[in-house]
Simulated assay, not measured.
Amino acid sequence: MAGLTVAALGVVGFLGYQAAATAPDHPTQARPGSHASQSKEKDKDRGRQKKKSTALPAASGTGERVVYALDDKRVWLVGADGKATRTFEVGPSPASPDPGTYAVTSRNEGGVGSDGVQVEHVVVFHSEGGVVFGFSAAVDGSMPDPNARKRTGAVRESRADGSALWEFAEVGTKVVVIP
């Protein structure tokens, strides 16, 4: 019986060692030029790119508008003077509108999103092929699943950002979607 206990402890210890060595919060030293080293360099590059994305893109139109950058997953609220008053990250859904200029067509204080989630501050700016594109904030703070099979046009932001967009974007406000 003691032999089985010792063997079991040995297996548990080995499995714990393997888990600790491969866990993301226990990084291992990477040799220069190794795959892990290259991955870290790519992560650093992504971080640099992300910092750049907070600046209002030059080719995003003029005047008062909402700018939605698909690749950056970011929105800017731009005043009449052409200066961004707020920017924030968003969570896109499986469907995205084509780049172009749209206008807010409707607003709704709350309801259920096309993905079945309770939402507030819904600002709709386009519909195409049965998909309605708009900004909203999930009451529970969740973001849409970009890999979901159902094509929805929900662009989700935090509740605070949703409130700011709601105050900014009245019906008729320009929405510029860029790649």
Rank of each mutant, 00 (worst) to 15 (best):
K50T: 07
G33I: 10
D81I: 10
E120P: 02
K42T: 02
A30M: 06
G91Y: 09
S53R: 08
P94C: 07
F135K: 03
A80K: 11
F125S: 00
G111N: 09
Q38P: 04
D43H: 08
T28E: 11
V132R: 06
V104M: 04
T62G: 11
G61Q: 06
R31Q: 14
Y17E: 02
G110A: 09
E41G: 05
D72A: 15
G130N: 13
F125I: 05
K83D: 08
V90K: 01
P24E: 03
Q118G: 04
G16S: 11
V123G: 11
L9E: 01
R48V: 09
R74D: 06
S93N: 04
G134Q: 09
S136I: 04
A30H: 00
G100V: 04
D115P: 02
F125Y: 13
D98Q: 13
K40I: 10
G134E: 03
Q18C: 12
R31F: 12
E120H: 13
S96Q: 02
G100W: 07
A80C: 07
K42L: 14
V123Q: 02
E41K: 12
Q49P: 00
D72S: 15
G116H: 08
G79V: 01
N108Q: 13
R46Y: 04
F125M: 06
F14K: 01
G16V: 07
L70W: 09
V90A: 15
F88N: 05
W76K: 11
A20L: 14
H26R: 11
F133R: 07
F125T: 06
G63N: 13
K52D: 15
K73V: 04
V75N: 12
Y102P: 04
G61L: 05
V123F: 10
P99E: 00
S96N: 08
P27T: 00
G47K: 07
V12T: 14
H121Q: 11
T28M: 11
G47M: 03
G129T: 08
A30L: 07
A36V: 01
V12Q: 06
P99L: 02
G110S: 13
Q29C: 05
S60Q: 12
A36F: 02
V90T: 13
K51C: 03
V12F: 13
Q118D: 12
E109K: 14
D115N: 15
A23P: 00
A19K: 05
G130C: 09
P24V: 09
V75M: 15
P32F: 09
K83N: 14
G61W: 05
H126W: 04
V119F: 02
V67I: 06
G129L: 05
G16L: 08
T22V: 11
G47Y: 01
